[in-house]
Amino acid sequence: MLEIKDLHAGIEGKEILKGISLTVNAGEVHAIMGPNGSGKSTLSKVLAGHPQYEVTGGSIAYEANFKKLELTGMEPDQRAREGIFLAFQYPVEIPGVSSSVFLRAAFNAICRHQGAEEMDPIDFDKYVREKMKLLQMDDKFLDRPVNVDFSGGEKKRNEILQMAVLNPRLAVLDETDSGLDIDSMKIVAEGVNKLRRKDNAVIVITHYQRLLNYIQPDFVHILYDGKIVRSEGRELALEVENRGYDWLIKR
């Protein structure tokens, strides 16, 4: 589904990703861990196509819906319509725009692109409320402006709700656990687990292994100074929890 080869990327002339290669197949969950400043968030933004980040080398091949695409050079909205989703570490406030209007606009933009029929407001309302149950979200949420005056936990739940509504092929969760109390984290993780299917994949970016107790990854990669320094199975996350990152770096 996703094949990253020797990816170099940075911001304002400063190279942050220094040659990353990673293959993600449908049905898999990959965790990317690493200390602060290792390039985790940069990787997520580069995958989603943030315009301020520049790809200086390498390629990102993506395959979904029987289409092969090279992601570098594609606009963020094109990527989203092809099934890529980024759950933001810091979700952005959009004042005056109700969550229901926003969600439906996004949902329909993706439907239009994929040749599916758009949903009218009534059907969409039913559809969203189903998904909201999954994340135990309050009914009033739909009328509230997107992320405005949301608590940290609400913002993160809202990201996963969007993921549930937009039904992506490849979801990248950027530090979705940061700022969440344990109960909220369980809800969010359960939400993600229910969305796991054979034909989609998830990349979980996290600082701590705590979240990985709930969203169990098939592979764990350690990112350090813009490179993947180690890739193993789930047990690597536990080892990192016990020993920290230093032993991986100072080899």
């Binding site: 963020p76 909205d77 319509r81 725009v97």
Partner: peptide, 23 residues
């Protein structure tokens, strides 16, 4: 804000229009 909306599939015009409408 623009990146957030666009990363959800809304194109440039739709994103601007949503932000301005909200405002």
């Amino acid at each position: 804000q623009m990146f957030y909306l666009r990363s959800r599939g809304l194109d440039l015009e739709e994103s601007v229009s949503l932000i301005i409408n909200g405002f």
